[in-house]
């Protein structure tokens, strides 16, 4: 579709979603009810103490069965289904948000504040980060993310993203099970449904702000028995956490030093993650 024919229609799009991901402000407009509904999985309203440096505008217009995608006024392509348009937007928004912080390394970790101190929970995939994050949230801890922390020499800040939790994991956090029934989700034929959850859904604050990392916990899934929080040597922690890092997209040198000094300054623990209740008790005590 030529750009000039799409442009007059942009103002008439019925749905408008606006949100911030750290340095980027986003606006997505669409005339598709279905797409607008699915975008609630992506769009979050975390309060962010972070300056917006760039703004990006997307529009998705239905046109003869296609979903035409317009980025900052220029048509960039089309998809044949709402789900595909959602995937494209989801990826594009994240790429833009990462590119706006090119010198930050990405640490795959849940994060939160306890007594004003920023802490991260890292671990291999399926170690239980998200479920533990929900349990901590339920216990009154200010969890701010379950997936990514952006880190450079000056700051560490949680990447604002809803917590994507497997529906069956929510069985382990009964207090949130009912709430989760009404929340956005994605599903496919082979994996359990993933529910998009955030602190605001359960009346908790969701404030993201840069802060030094006060404590790093690496999760070792045990899956049963009492959890145990054990101090961890710095060298061992760097070795472990390195596996959960993605280097800065700018290729800037020195990122190992950034990670190393963050580990060196933080209190470091491993958590043998058995039952969630004892994990929460130990973390509250150990990180306070």
């Amino acid at each position: 579709m030529p750009e000039q024919s799409a442009q007059p229609r942009l103002d008439k799009l019925s749905h408008r979603l606006a949100f911030q991901i750290l340095a980027c402000g986003f606006e997505i407009r669409t005339d598709s009810d279905e797409l607008a509904e699915s975008l609630t999985y992506l769009v979050q309203q975390a309060e962010q103490d972070y300056p917006v440096r760039e703004r990006h505008r997307f529009a998705v217009l239905r046109d003869e069965g296609r979903y035409v995608i317009v980025e900052n006024g220029a048509e960039t392509g089309f998809e044949l289904a709402s789900a595909a348009a959602f995937d494209t937007l989801f990826k594009r928004v994240h790429v833009i948000a990462f590119e706006a912080l090119p010198d930050h390394l990405r640490l795959h970790a849940a994060s939160g504040f306890l007594g004003g101190r920023f802490f991260v929970l890292a671990g291999e995939k399926y170690a239980g980060k998200s479920t533990l994050a929900l349990s901590l949230l339920q216990a009154g801890v200010d969890m701010v993310g379950d997936e990514l922390v952006m880190l450079n020499r000056e700051e560490a800040v949680s990447f604002p993203r809803k917590m994507y939790v497997r529906e069956d994991s929510l069985e382990l956090v009964p207090a949130f099970r009912e709430v989760a029934r009404g929340l956005p989700f994605v599903s496919n034929a082979v994996e359990p449904r993933m529910v998009a959850f955030d602190p605001l859904d359960v009346g908790r604050p969701w404030r993201i702000r840069p802060a030094p990392i006060g404590a790093i916990v690496f999760l070792d899934a045990v899956h049963s028995g009492r959890s145990r929080l054990v101090p961890c040597g710095k060298l061992d922690m760097v070795k472990r956490i390195m596996t959960q890092c993605t280097p800065p997209i700018s290729g800037a040198p020195g990122w190992v030093g950034v990670l190393t000094s963050a580990v060196d300054r933080a209190d470091t623990f491993t958590l043998e993650l058995g039952d969630l209740d004892s994990a929460v008790v130990d973390l509250r005590r150990g990180l306070a």
């Binding site: 040597g233 710095k234 760097v238 390195m242 030093g257 190393t260 000094s261 580990v263």
Partner: peptide, 23 residues
């Protein structure tokens, strides 16, 4: 690139893109 931590060194070899851990 030699980085010191409390209990050793974390060394990044820029040329080989390898990380080494020394006690």
């Amino acid at each position: 690139e030699v980085n010191e931590v409390a209990d050793g060194y974390v060394i990044y070899d820029n040329d080989r893109e390898q990380v080494h851990y020394l006690n």
